[in-house]
């Protein structure tokens, strides 16, 4: 049981860290969004799964409550994170930021 918790929390920390590094390393806003959105969502998913497993494994009313609340927080994160990143990407494009080094840009022909 403990090993499972370590693995889940470890994956969570690893991917959150990769997301943070991606934020510094990539050249423009769209590629940064790739790193930031995907890695932090995946990392937070696994961190939250770790806490849910911990809550249900401890048992008792208090820990079950903890696990259920974490499930709701996880749903909120999974729904809001990609939607927020669409909003940022579209706003960035409409405010005139072009993707750096783009091979093809179909949206430019469109508007």
């Amino acid at each position: 049981m403990n090993i499972l918790l370590y693995v889940l929390l470890g994956i969570g920390v690893l991917f959150n860290g990769l997301g943070a590094i991606a934020l510094l390393r990539f050249p423009d806003i769209y590629t940064r969004l790739h790193g930031a959105t995907k890695c932090t969502t995946f990392g937070s998913l696994f961190t939250a799964l770790g806490v849910i497993v911990y809550g249900f494994a401890r048992g008792g009313a208090q820990y079950n409550t903890l696990a259920i609340h974490v499930i709701i927080a996880l749903i909120a994160l999974l729904v809001t994170n990609p939607t927020g990143s669409h909003a940022i990407a579209r706003a960035a494009y409409r405010s005139g930021i072009k993707p750096v080094g783009a091979v093809v840009d179909k949206l430019e022909d469109q508007s």
Partner: peptide, 23 residues
């Protein structure tokens, strides 16, 4: 835009760390 991306990441990280601190 870059600053907003940074802010978004920060929010997700804060939520994740709050969940962990709750445990």
């Amino acid at each position: 835009g870059d600053r907003v991306v940074g802010l978004d990441t920060l929010n997700t990280l804060v939520v994740a760390s709050m969940i962990v601190l709750g445990a």
